[in-house]
Design a binder for these strands. Structure first.
Length: 388
DNA sequence: TATCCTTTGAAGGAA
DNA sequence: TTCCTTCAAAGGATA
């Protein structure tokens, strides 16, 4: 078993080592999420067959320039650990025609460098000038193609706020709001009328639009249903997107925002704060308890911080992301000014970080290396016990 | 039944 | 100006 310099086409994790893979198994579908990329089973070059448990995950054939190997054991059939019954691979990642890459992330241009590139730098105003100053002539639902792009199969996508995008959709356009009682009485909506009243939801941002589009695909590929897990995958995919790809969603989000502004001129995001005051009993604080708001909830800039999953999501941007000076077990390493140095100065300007933040960052890096090394040792041990 | 989880981005308030 | 909090979607899990 080795780690491959490749990427899981489901969770988009980068793998660690380069060992000329032939057949690989991704562990991202297992109860335990990927820890350091995906754990792969490697069969001897040119040979294909059953993989060893417990890796029952998806199958990826990594050499897309070659036709599928003619071997009765390929693709392998896995046994569902719960039912004991054979089950097909979850992800149709078998070789694409030569020259094609079955997954957009699986392109030769994709490197670890692009994986670690900074976040999308554009602000909501980054597209200023790209659009007419007024969209007042545009219908909320069209014209067809207004909000479409090659990756989105919903030209003129109905606004989530207007039509209701799903079970949790509550926002209605003013017209639909007034009609909501009719629709309720006619049985078209199962939402209690009182839940819909005057609640104008925020326009979706770029990532939300991306999620909305990609979620069904991920569900179809992975058979996952839990949104937390799906969102982690989507987050990785989002980071793995090309800048141009992300730009499409930022553009859509900008249009969404403009339309929202026109529909609800006096609306403020603040309006929704009160509506959900009952919510969020207590976003979990750090283990130290009462560690202040900087650690709890959406701190660390709101995202990418020390989420509970960051320890297991490994390369997903968790790990050393965020100012680790907020680690409760850190005694001397408290960031004195509580300015998160990493967030403030970025990873490239560590010289400007305060000492505690820097040392903690080094520690966390070392911890990740240790984890990798442990895993590598485990892998090597298994290889020695079960030589390929 | 309500909230949490999990993601990123945007908005708004506090310092 | 910077940081922090909340909310947007989604649906299973949990209290």
């Amino acid at each position: 078993m080795v780690l491959l310099d490749s990427m899981c086409s489901t969770c988009s994790s980068l793998l660690l080592d380069k060992m000329a893979p032939a057949l690989s198994i991704c562990s991202c579908l297992f109860p335990e999420p990927c820890t350091i990329g995906c754990v792969l089973d490697l069969l001897p070059a040119g040979k294909f067959g059953m993989v060893q448990p417990p890796y029952h995950g998806l199958v990826m054939y990594n050499d897309f320039t070659q036709p599928p190997p003619a071997h009765k054991g390929y693709p392998p059939v896995y046994t569902d650990p719960k039912t004991g019954l054979p089950r097909p691979p979850m992800y149709a990642a078998y070789p694409a025609p030569p020259g094609q890459f079955p997954h957009p992330l699986y392109s030769p241009e994709f490197t670890s460098a692009s994986w670690h590139r900074p976040g999308y730098p554009l602000t909501s105003g980054a597209f200023a000038g790209s659009f007419p100053p007024s969209l007042s002539s545009l219908s909320r639902y069209g014209p067809p193609g207004l909000l479409s792009h090659p990756g989105l199969g919903h030209p003129g996508i109905p606004h989530h706020a207007s039509l209701g995008a799903g079970p949790k959709s509550e926002l209605m356009s003013p017209q639909l709001l007034s009609d909501s009682h009719h629709s309720n009485s006619s049985g078209h909506s199962t939402e209690p009328p009182q839940k819909k009243k005057n609640h104008i939801k925020k326009p979706l941002n770029a990532f939300m639009l991306f999620m909305k589009e990609q979620r069904p695909k991920v569900i179809a590929e992975c058979t996952l249903r839990e949104s937390s897990a799906i969102n982690q995958i989507l987050g990785r995919r989002w980071h793995a997107l090309d800048r141009s790809e992300q730009a499409k969603y930022y553009e859509m989000a900008r249009k969404e925002k403009e339309l929202h502004l026109q529909l609800y001129p006096g609306w403020s995001a603040r309006d929704n704060y009160a509506a959900h005051q009952k919510k969020k009993k207590r976003k979990k604080d750090g283990p130290g308890g009462g560690g202040g708001s900087s650690m709890g909830g959406a701190g660390m800039g709101g995202h990418g911080g020390l989420s509970p999953m960051s320890g297991v999501s490994g390369m997903s941007g968790g790990g050393s992301m965020g100012c680790l000076s907020m680690e409760p077990e850190n005694k001397s390493g408290e960031c004195p000014n509580e300015k998160k140095c990493r967030a403030r100065y970025g990873i490239e300007q560590q010289s400007r970080w305060c000492k505690p933040c820097r040392s903690l960052h080094e520690k966390s890096d070392q911890a990740m290396v240790d984890t990798d090394q442990k895993h590598f040792l485990l892998v090597k041990t298994k290889e020695e016990v079960h030589p390929l």
